[in-house]
Amino acid sequence: MEDNVIVRLDNCSIAFDGETVLNNLSLDIHDEEFVTLLGPSGCGKTTTLRFIGGFLTPDSGRVLFDGKDVTHVPPYKREVNTVFQRYALFPHLNVFENIAFGLRLKKVPENEIKELVGEMIELVNLRGFESRKIGAMSGGQQQRVAIARALVNKPRILLLDEPLGALDLKLRKDMQVELKRIQQQLDITFVYVTHDQEEALTMSDTVVVMNDGIIQQIGTPEDIYNEPRNAFVADFIGESNIIEGIMHEDYLVQFAGEKFKCVDKGFEKDEFVDVVVRPEDIQIVTPNKGDLWGVVKSVVFKGVHFEMLIEQAGYTWKVHSTQSAEPGAQVGLKIGPDEIHIMKRSEA
C-alpha cells in the first residue's frame, strides 16, 4: 500500500479569521482508491478538498502529489478535477461546450474533442442533450454534466464535493451505483465528500471520518462500522447506544449496573470508558433470560424493522428488531460480548 500513495496531506492546518478550521490534518490517498471524507456540516470537508484541488493553501503543512510538493501549485497545473458542491456549470455554454471546456483549453483538435465528449456523454447517459442550455436541465442531469466535464480531462484524481446532495433519495441511490461503476471502469482515484454515512459506507474503499477539523478515524467501511474508535464515530456512523462504563480488567466491563464479558483489552484497571452498542445488536428476550431488563416505552415501525425505546435504570436503550413488543411490557435485553464496543472517553 505504501508505495502507491498519490496524494499526501502532511500536517495541514488552516485558520479563518483566527478560528482553526483544520488542525494538523494528515491523510494518504492511494491510487485508484475511492476515499470518502465523512463528517457533519462545517467540519472542514470542503476545505480539505480545496487543499487537494489547489484552491486553498494551508497555513502550515504540505500537500504532496506523487511525493512532489505541490502546496503552492495553482489548480490549473494539477492533474485533478473537481465536481463542485453546487455543480458550478457554465450557464453561458450548452452541455457539449461545458464538457468540452477543459479540452478546448488544452487545444485538443476538434474531431478529437467531438469523440471524447461523445464518449463522456455516453458514459453519463446524456445522449441527445448535447445542445441543451444548462438552465434547461434537471438537477440530476446537471450533476451528470458536472461529472462528465471533470472526467473528460482524464484526471488522476477526481474530487467530488457532495455531488448528490441536491438529489432525491431514489436518484441518489441510482447515481451512487453509477458513480461507483464509473470509478471502477476508469480506474481513477475518487475523493468523495458527503455527510451521509450510508452513502459513505456503500461506495467507499476507505472512509475518513472528520469532526471539528480533526480526523477521527480512517478505515474500511466495515472497520468504521464495526470498530468505531470513539464515541463520535460510533454515533455518527449509524445509530448507537453510548453509555458510560468502567473497564475492570481485560475483557470485563461494567455498565448499566451489570458486568459484561467483552472482547476489548489494553485499558487501565478500572478506567472510565464509553461503551457503544448498536441498536440492531441488542436482542429482546423474556425478562428472566436477559442480561438487563427494562420497560418498553415506544415502538415505531421503520419499514424493515421496529425501533423500540426501552427504559432501564435511568438509561433509554434504542433497539432495532424485526419482532415488536407491546409498549409498557417488561422485556429482557441480551448483549453478546462481540456486540460490545469499548472506547476511550473522548476528551470533551
Partner: peptide, 18 residues
C-alpha cells in the same frame, strides 16, 4: 458570478487570462 464557477474554470485548466 459565483466564485465556484470561476474555480471550476481554473480547475479545468484555465489560467486567469482564459
Amino acid at each position: 458570478i459565483d466564485d465556484s464557477i470561476i474555480n471550476a474554470a481554473k480547475d479545468l485548466g484555465a489560467n486567469m487570462w482564459q
